[in-house]
Design a protein around this nucleic acid. Structure first.
Lengths: 173, 173
DNA sequence: CGCCGGAATGTTATTGTATAATAGTTGCGA
DNA sequence: TCGCAACTATTATACAATAACATTCCGGCG
């Protein structure tokens, strides 16, 4: 792209603006492939294809959308097909669920353990993922005070990405 | 402790351990009542009763559970009854949705604007809410870098509350 | 009084999300 | 060849959420 290469461009910025998305796909897919063989888990055709589909864009895809695609591409047509693939991919950390949308996105940082945080555009449903420190301090403090053992955490922020904010502003004028 | 009265007891601790829950109910309900009349919004019977039901415990209640209760207590029996009440209560900030569970909890801090954060016990489904700074710094930085306008955010941590951790440990021995 | 408009409810129907339960398939080592 | 394990297929169902429309209640106003 574009890009600019300043060195301090953030990940969210990457996701939200034009970039060579084939790089994203290749990079993540390679990583997944490698990790899967390392961990001796089966990266089967359905699972792989599900990940490919999710990688096609940074927008979040609902389960039944994924299912429709899998069906069209010759895999099963019943819900469990999609959900099993998703379970696997989530378990491996290749995919996150965006709770707010009941939808799924490919993880852009499959290599590092992290607490995913999302910037969710309510207009175009694009989702920018950003890595966040294992667990935010405030939360950790509360948890420790109660003896609550955090196993997994997420952050989700909803709003308007820049493109949509501009578009909306235009529409309202 | 129990308790210990150190003065630094946190809110999450409050929710996760025994306490006089009638105080919670009264306190929140009073606040809601007052705020509603201040803001000149209609705190109608269904809405009020829905809040009362949610206040009965710190556990998260699914929409259809609430609906069943409303029905049993003589209000409507169709989904929109529950969802309308929830929309109102959420809009007023009296209730939060716990995305992870597709369930709803009464807000324990109806007086202050805040980003809710939840400690969700996967065993007993109890939910401890803790107030968190408007928006966590890391996220805010990302957002600003992209021109993303955050309108609303949540944090959810899943794990085991102390009681359930003990119980589970016991069961496994 | 009688009409109007808005807010809140009631009702029916539909779509989307997710899982339970069960059975069939494939590959592989003993 | 048997049996195990992992994966896949299918049916059915429960739960979550919203669309669309009818109805009621109430306050303001000519």
């Amino acid at each position: 792209m574009a890009n600019g290469k300043t060195g301090e461009r953030t990940a969210a910025a990457e996701a939200m603006r034009p970039h060579d998305h084939r790089d994203c796909i290749r990079r993540v897919l390679d990583e997944a492939e490698r990790r899967a063989s390392d961990d001796r888990v089966n990266f089967t055709p359905v699972r792989r294809h599900a990940l490919e589909i999710l990688l096609e864009s940074h927008a979040a895809m609902p389960a039944y959308g994924l299912l429709k695609r899998l069906d069209a591409d010759g895999f099963g047509s019943q819900p469990p097909v999609a959900y099993r693939a998703l379970d696997f991919l989530i378990g491996q950390g290749f995919v996150h669920k965006v709770e707010r949308l009941n939808a799924y996105v490919a993880c852009m940082y499959p290599h590092e353990a992290h607490t995913p945080a999302f910037l969710i555009c309510r207009a175009c449903r694009s989702v920018a993922e950003t890595c966040v420190a294992p667990t935010p301090a405030a939360l950790l403090r509360e948890a420790q005070a109660t003896g609550f053992a955090i196993e997994r955490s997420v952050m989700e922020a909803e709003g308007l990405c820049r493109a949509c904010a501009l578009a909306e502003g235009a529409a309202c004028n």
